[in-house]
Amino acid sequence: MMDYIIGHINYWLIIAVMMVGMFTLMSRTNMIKKLAGLSIFQTAVILFYVSLGKVEDGTAPIVAEGFSTYSNPLPQVLMLTAIVVGVATTAVGFALVIRIKEAYNTIEEDEIRELDAKS
């Protein structure tokens, strides 16, 4: 049992990070904090991919003398794309928050809901 937990320690940590992200996303009304939660959530998934590619005793996947075991490069390559997507999402999100701030003069979700209900 202990072995199982320790052997998968990276996954446990990733799940913890993911939950932190999810919780922030759900529990906050401040939009900036929500976006922060979203980023943490995405980061957890990226970490998950990267740790998938880890091979015991493997090195960076560059062919060189004296190394025969390499980590799997594919997940890392994929994550480059995912990071770009994540950055783009966050950027669009922040842009939206700025415009919301301009339009409503607040970035608290509940206050916006109130304002919307009135109009």
Binding site: L25, M31, K34, L38, F41, Q42, T89, V92, G93, L96, V97, R99, I100, A103, Y104, I112, D116
Partner: peptide
């Protein structure tokens, strides 16, 4: 529309 888009962004990204 801004708020709708923001909500869509959050849910869509999830």
């Amino acid at each position: 529309a801004l708020f709708a888009s923001f909500n869509y962004l959050i849910l869509g990204t999830i």
